[in-house]
Amino acid sequence: MILPEPYRLIAYLVGALAFVGLNAAYLVWLERKVAARFQRRPGPTEVGPAGLLQPIADGLKLLGKQFVVWPHADRVLFRLAPAFVLAPALMCLAVIPFGHALCARDFNLGLLLVFAFGSVNVLAILLGGWASRNKYSVIAAARVVSQNVAYEIPMLLVVTTLLLTAGTMNLRELVQQQAGGVWNWNLVKVWVNPLMPVLFLIFYVCMLAETNRAPFDMAEAESELVAGAFTEYAGMGFGLFFMAEYANIVVGASVATVLFLGGWHSPVGVMPGTFWFLVKLYALVFSVMWVRWTFPRTQFYRLLNLSWKLLIPAGLGALLFTALILKLR
């Protein structure tokens, strides 16, 4: 069933907002539960059964708080930044195919759009940090910019390598190419390109860095920079940054699912569709949390070294190698 244009737009807006909102709220809950299990705690239990109403209580609390703009901050940019941070994630979701027909816009340059909007996130954190006029925030903002610039490159290199074999930027077509069982997923298509698992690993690391997740959480770095770029934000201003963090994780995990894990295709042949897409998506999200609650934070210069000295050369090498096999085949 393909909806006509205006309805499609409305359906997307409602759907995407609800999806992002629910995800942000319940991923926080999930993260707290998962972290608790890793640490042998029960996690939130008091508000609602198994603490399920906790995100709602937290949301209400954040909404009820004053959005403080302290006198020395840049008033306009300070208010603008939280809005800036969430919008790109919403845009990215427009082209992600959640199911065979569940895609707001079947767009030929879908992947390009995702990366284009994905980068706006950095700008928002930079704005937030800069406008705060707080030394910690400025340090964090500067870190985030150099970090994201550094990790955008290997990520794009990996994706370009993948596109060499796939030959399309349309996310739906990318998924369709991976139909027919686990062995057709890009992750394990080693006969097409023996470097596929390595590519996935690089992509995963870059995804962690791009979404500012531990062990690369330089934007927040709570034990050094208090709350990094978000130090001066209160109430829903902080809440929006928080939501955006989770929205970005969802976008990152979705892209990984589409590119490497066969999108909505079922690994066992039953129930193909959105269900499997979500399973893969949340499995990835879980792994992101697992990494966060296991490892310490890296140093900032090592983070940059990792990208410039290891991931970018590796990505370049993979690109050359793939081009070579394609030529020789």
């Binding site: 890793f38 042998r40 770095a221 034990s223 296991t294 310490p296 934070r297």
Partner: peptide, 16 residues
């Protein structure tokens, strides 16, 4: 110390 380094989980194990 590990909390300073950004790892939260060992703190809980140690406190256990």
């Amino acid at each position: 110390f590990l909390l300073d380094l950004g790892a939260f989980t060992p703190l809980l194990y140690a406190f256990d």
